[in-house]
Design a protein around this nucleic acid. Structure first.
Lengths: 203, 203, 203, 203
DNA sequence: CTCTAATCGAGACGGTACGTCAAGTCTTAGT
DNA sequence: ACTAAGACTTGACGTACCGTCTCGATTAGAG
């Protein structure tokens, strides 16, 4: 290790002694408050009070408010991150299934709230942005590319198609519409998007 | 547009008496500080101090930090908002020209900073989101749709194509890549995107 | 006296041009507000608003809040300041008459309020203190001394008595009791005080 | 319901945890500033800055500027409050000793400043007035009355004399003279006052 | 199964910024 | 041309949270 100074100064706490009770109370409190007051009005003080926990207990285990909310976030959406897409042989249908689900998730108030909090936060916090991208965005993206790849192998997509671009052409517009609230995220919209994208990728 | 600002909802001060000197000093100070410390560490107090202005003068004309930065933002990008796209007859070339410029803008550090500040802020502030959408996003979107429409009239796009969707398929992926920093916004990337989208829209 | 106000030191504006309407409106407003919110919460802004007068109009003629209230004060109590005491030949009776009236005045809520405001103010403002003493306290004191003097001439007081001290022995305790709210200012109290003081001054 | 006192609603911090360091720094800073800028220009902000203390730490323990200065005041004069008067058998001499000391105290610039600040403040703040009266004025008054009482027992004062009134006849004029700055507080003045008062109280 | 060291709830601490109020000065619109 | 209205700079207000720092009181793991 090049730099061990910080390690010696700031002794990290023993995770074996960590109170699971406190951890859950904090994440629950944070999740509740996120819903009630939103991310920007969410305070460490309020989380501590709601969780009946000392502020130090939060700071002992999380470096920042963003980190706490990140754990709330992964408790919500982390479970399914990177799961492979269904492969029924019908590429369009499989993509529609998956992106309809994505659209539905964005429509759910709780996910919407937390995701917006994150979207906001990663604008300022590059490290957090990297964490989110690596652990959530990239795995999902890879799963989409894998399905597109198997579709290409089956001759449904041009051999020279850029699958990275293709995946972004699917996620991008949905994300854009949600982000800027420029229109409703209906299944019909998703279907048309998938169809048009696949049309552009045909052999 | 005579008055392109966020100030329309404020209660009663007489805009005729407004000090133009103070207004400019505030926006300049905010722009500078935004570059120096970033949005989340930008404070009203610092803006006031830098602009040699009373805090009250800021609060008199803008309801929040976000509103101030919004005006900084519109001063930067608002000028060209809604300008019609070039129409050389070559739809692909024209779209590439425009979206290459958009990609370049996102790459510029100052625009990047301000735009990220905004993207973050509109997640929490619906009213601000509406203002941004109406005055910046929607006009630009309309300009793209208009160009697509003239391309459709020229037979370069299928008559039944959904131009709203088409516009989002162009902006969405670019925005997505910038937002999540999943890849570089090169001209080459833009070109491939435009080509693939237009392929999907062919008659 | 032509001008019995605090305004004499103010340098330049031409008193001939002074709006009597504004002057009265300001003093009325100040008097009303003094009763409603008390001295320390009385603001120039509120006086100006209530009097429907520009703040500058107040500052043009009075240097401070204290000066305005001083004029309110003299309008109230200035009229009778320095008036000679009755002289019926019965010194004790005459003093009782006068100091009972003084006690009653202190008991009156409006006078109480204004006098307290003044007492507070003259602690910080030496110039104001001098003005109050010269124009209000000293004239009244002199009137008391004059009556004591005529009593001494009539043999009711020892020839060597210090009348300055005597006057203070009358005003002092009454003032003290009012100031510190250590007891009620009844006529009976005043009578006992006068009797005891005169007993100490007997030939 | 029956027990609806103010003390139950007032959520007060735990005095055991109070930092004595902070308390002293605050009182020292307030005392210094009081001397430098005077009461009315004394600000909580300046006290906090000088004491290198957070403003909240002041507000946590004192409700107002007046309360802080009250503690400064009691640190100065509170030590001797209520101490019994000397009893040498010579009533006049004992009273002169004590009131000469009082006069000297009023003459001391620091006591003068603080006492004036208080006199001003208790005009607006009844609660503070009560505190001052109970803790400082009344104890001193009682001590004087006790000495007068022992003098009465020794036959130096008429048995029917009102000792409350007598005490006020001593404190009142001294206070009055100091308050209105109508004359110097010399030992000679005090002596004459004591003599005249005792003359009025003789059997 | 103690003993002891860490974590825990609690909250005071030195700070920064908030958004408001008023002071006293300067500017402008309207009679 | 005056003057009311009010915008301006300044600075203090009292509050909310920040992140750090004691405090006892558990509480869990090493002995």
């Amino acid at each position: 290790m090049a730099d061990n100074t910080a390690e010696q100064t700031r002794r990290s706490p023993d995770p074996r002694r960590r109170s699971q009770r406190a951890r859950n109370a904090i994440l629950d409190a944070a999740a509740e408050l996120l819903g009630e007051v939103g991310y920007s009005k969410l305070t460490m003080e309020a989380i501590a009070a709601r969780a009946r926990v000392g502020k130090q207990t939060i700071y002992r285990w999380w470096p920042s408010k963003a980190a706490v909310v990140f754990d709330v976030f992964t408790r919500l959406t982390g479970a399914t991150a990177g799961a492979p897409l269904p492969d029924t042989g019908d590429l369009a249908a499989d993509l529609k299934t998956v992106f309809r689900a994505t659209a539905d998730e964005f429509t759910d108030p709780e996910t919407d709230r937390t995701t917006r909090a994150f979207t906001a936060e990663i604008q300022h916090d590059e490290e957090l942005a990297r964490a989110v991208t690596e652990r959530l965005v990239e795995p999902n993206n890879r799963a989409v590319r894998d399905r597109l790849s198997s579709g290409r192998a089956a001759g449904q997509i041009a051999p020279e198609a850029d699958l990275e671009l293709a995946a972004e052409m699917l996620s991008g517009p949905i994300n854009h519409r949600w982000l800027l609230r420029t229109g409703p995220l209906t299944h019909e919209y998703v279907d048309r998007l998938v169809d048009t994208v696949l049309r552009g990728l045909r052999p």
